[in-house]
């Protein structure tokens, strides 16, 4: 592969944040400690720790954390010798207060995430991150849902607020390889900061799409060991490391250590295998926010309807990340409709 960027790759492990969705936000402190210790020893550059919906995400809307994320961040900082501890912040959910608190506990990098068309809500938090001396990164979620020109425009806004990198975030796992290519290519031509890529494996394209992104010049890459992330999870980090190594791209990450921690540390944390079952597949196919998976399954059970119908309807209505309340609402409406049809 001939990469279109000469900057080194930086891998961010997101299982301890994105994976929070897959375990219904039930991470324990000892799980975080053992995972961070092993990831740090394996040489992973950044490790993200937060509620799945970012700082302040522990709510009735998204699910409450078993353990306060600040405790988990503190524990992660204590365990890590080289890896930087990252946090996620979604403006509208978390505020600069939580960001300052995470920073005071030792988090040194923040990804400020907005829907792909709403970058201007991130100005406050990106500015604050820079002021605090944290690395500030923009995260454009549901990147599949906007035209390329819109994505570029929004990424440039984040750059203007001080972002040091901007991610194409495929929250629904809906992007196809050629769509990843055109997005990264367009950003490379318009930004002077680094470009990142965050995948979901709902269509089994996460590794393939990540390779396309790297080839096109993305240098900030997210992965989750054992695909421990929302929906079908993310680019499987240990697999990506192996593939890159075969391609002659050295990430500086120890492959055997990654395999071992995948088997012995992250594996036991999974509530169920992260395979692509119907729910995730539908999300990738219909372009629905991956974190909705467990919520839609619960709502389907509660109202006695097929969770696929809920997910497809959410996609049809243009429901975006963070609107988990609409899942119950749509489910109740669909249940009501099917009842009256029976009558």
């Amino acid at each position: 592969m001939i990469r279109k960027s000469d900057k080194p790759l930086q891998i961010t492990e997101v299982s301890l944040r994105d994976g929070s969705h897959a375990v219904a936000h039930q991470f324990t402190e000892s799980q975080i400690r053992s995972a961070v210790r092993a990831l740090d020893e394996a040489g992973v550059h950044n490790i993200e720790v937060s509620h799945g919906d970012g700082l302040g995400g522990s709510t009735l809307q998204y699910g409450r954390s078993l353990i306060d994320e600040m405790k988990l961040i503190e524990a992660a900082v204590e365990e890590s010798k080289q890896s930087r501890i990252a946090v996620l912040l979604l403006p509208g959910i978390g505020t600069v207060h939580e960001l300052k608190q995470a920073h005071s506990l030792g988090a040194s990098l923040v990804r400020v995430a907005t829907h792909v068309t709403e970058a201007d809500v991130s100005a406050q938090h990106l500015h604050m991150a820079r002021e605090l001396g944290m690395e500030a990164i923009g995260f454009l979620m549901m990147s599949h849902s906007a035209p390329v020109a819109k994505l570029v425009e929004q990424a440039k806004l984040m750059e203007s607020y001080g972002a040091e990198a901007v991610y194409v975030t495929d929250s629904a796992g809906a992007l196809l390889p050629h769509q990843v290519k055109e997005r990264i290519e367009a950003l490379r031509g318009s930004l002077s900061i680094e470009i990142g890529f965050h995948a979901h494996n709902n269509l089994s394209l996460a590794v393939a799409n990540t390779l396309v992104a790297i080839e096109e010049g993305a240098t900030r890459i997210d992965g989750s060991v054992r695909c421990l992330g929302a929906g079908a999870g993310n680019t499987q980090t240990e697999v990506l490391v192996a593939v890159l190594q075969k391609m002659g791209i050295n990430t500086g990450i120890d492959l055997y250590r990654m395999m071992d921690l995948a088997e012995h540390i992250i594996g036991p944390m999974l509530h169920r295998p992260q395979e692509i079952l119907t729910g995730s597949l539908v999300m990738g196919y219909a372009g629905v926010y991956s974190s909705f998976l467990l919520h839609a399954e619960r709502a389907g059970k509660r109202f006695g309807i097929d969770s696929r119908d809920i997910l497809v309807e959410l996609g049809r209505r243009g429901i975006i990340g963070g609107q988990e309340d609409m899942i119950l609402d749509v489910a109740a409406e669909l249940a009501h409709k099917s009842k009256s049809e029976v009558l």
Partner: peptide, 10 residues
């Protein structure tokens, strides 16, 4: 606790 979401649907 308050959350706000801006939805761009058209």
């Amino acid at each position: 606790k308050a959350l706000i979401i801006m939805n761009p649907a058209d």
